[in-house]
Design a protein around this nucleic acid. Sequence first.
RNA 1: CGGGGAGUAGCGCAGGCCGGUAGCGCAUCUGGUUUGGGACCAGGGGGUCGCAGGUUCGAAUCCUGUCUCCCCGACCA
Length: 492
Amino acid sequence: MSNILTSRKQDYAQWYNDLILKGGLAEHSDVRGCMVIKPYGFALWENMRDVLDKMFKDTGHQNAYFPLFIPKSYLSKEASHVEGFAKECAVVTHYRLKNDPNGNGVIVDPEAKLEEELIVRPTSETIIWSTYKKWIQSYRDLPLLINQWANVVRWEMRTRLFLRTAEFLWQEGHTAHATREEAIEETVKMLDVYATFVEEYMALPVIRGVKSPSERFAGAEDTYCIEALMQDGKALQAGTSHFLGQNFAKAFDVKFADKDNKIEHVWATSWGVSTRLIGALVMAHSDDEGLVLPPRIAPLQVVIVPIYNKDAEARQKIDDKAKALVKELQLKGIRAKFDNDDTTRPGWKFAEYELRGVPVRIALGARDLENNVAEVARRDEKTKSSVSLDGIESHIAQLLTDIQTNLYNKALAFRTENMRTVDSWDEFVRVLDETPGFVSAHWDGTAETEAKIKELTKATIRCIPLNNVQENGKCILTGNPSTQRVLFARAY
RNA sequence: CGGGGAGUAGCGCAGGCCGGUAGCGCAUCUGGUUUGGGACCAGGGGGUCGCAGGUUCGAAUCCUGUCUCCCCGACCA
């Protein structure tokens, strides 16, 4: 029974699927490409959401909500935007069903065709900017700093649980500013919020950077991103922040009067992270025994497993101690649970909580009580130690901090190890195949070269790191002059 | 959209070639013994075999059609 997961080595993709399904995070729904997020997975999302929401509010943003449906014509108002999203939009064409006259359930009522078809939002720029037009007249209405938590739909050809699903949950920030500089500042600020969140809460180091033009968001002037490295050496874009220039302001005619009563288009940004972060989290830290969750966002941080025996009196003592301990841990703000379910035995619980990635497990039996100790096991290193019950709460609190740090350090060490600098095409190809990870190399800056490299190696430019060192070199593929290195990787 | 796989009990699967009482493991329910790494014994319950046609005395099994999901590729957060 112990080998219920496919190992990473055996089949990384299958391992990931097993983890999501058996770890109780999500499952496939009856609708193709859509998933059901189960309570444990949703608890993870809620924790992420709560932290991010506070960070957004602390940086001056307010939440609002815009419709799920967008008039089809809105999408086409910004040329590159429609081009980017048109291929993956779900479209609502009718508003009513009726009983099939032939008796085969219900059919779409042909009489109920919509005058203008609606698309299910793949992102909300268009509906939001058509609204902002009404909200913004003067420089005094700026900056406008709005975020929304929502679901969006992108009709993907190929989906993977959390990493790419047809419907997903996310937040999208949409801001309007009086000046270009201020909008860029906002773009970078929110990228920084994402980076801080992912590094400090998810214990996952990221690289902040700018996308190459061909990887840009449809309608943006610049797309900033944070990129993380997964255990199989593939990169994953964990968040994006876009400087939209005046593209949407012009498309939707959003203008304001500045202090000199001059009429100008506003400057815009948008930024988002999604439930994809859960996929990143899973792939970054977990192992062949199951999930490994960083304490700061783990739904459950500590579980106490009782080890009973026949002695009813001893059992009572264990219960009393465990309940008192849970209470004390909770007083310290620790998410703790006493699992006294008597229908499963200790060994089963050990395996189950390991599968679910609970950071700390405390086992408490009669023998421990006699010695005034508990067995404390940490999920990240799979080590156990005997800890005195006196002041154990402080020990656990410290341990959770240590685990958080350890996970980050391990992920950072892994990324450092798998970040390679190469200067020749042969080496580039060899490194990608033999030791996947980020590859820092010179690129001549043309979309043609970028596309050719992708075609030949499946590697894409993940980003041009912020504050990138400028150095002269030769493009890895063409040998043309280059002024800086960019980061390549195969990516999710 | 191409290539592969799969739909049989809640879950995982066998059975199919060769048509004849629908089976196994896990889970579940009852009772008991247990409890320091996925316990054991005994007894019980649970299935329109994806759907629709056809062949046949008889179809999970053969034939035709159809739907769905998953995996691998091209597109993408």
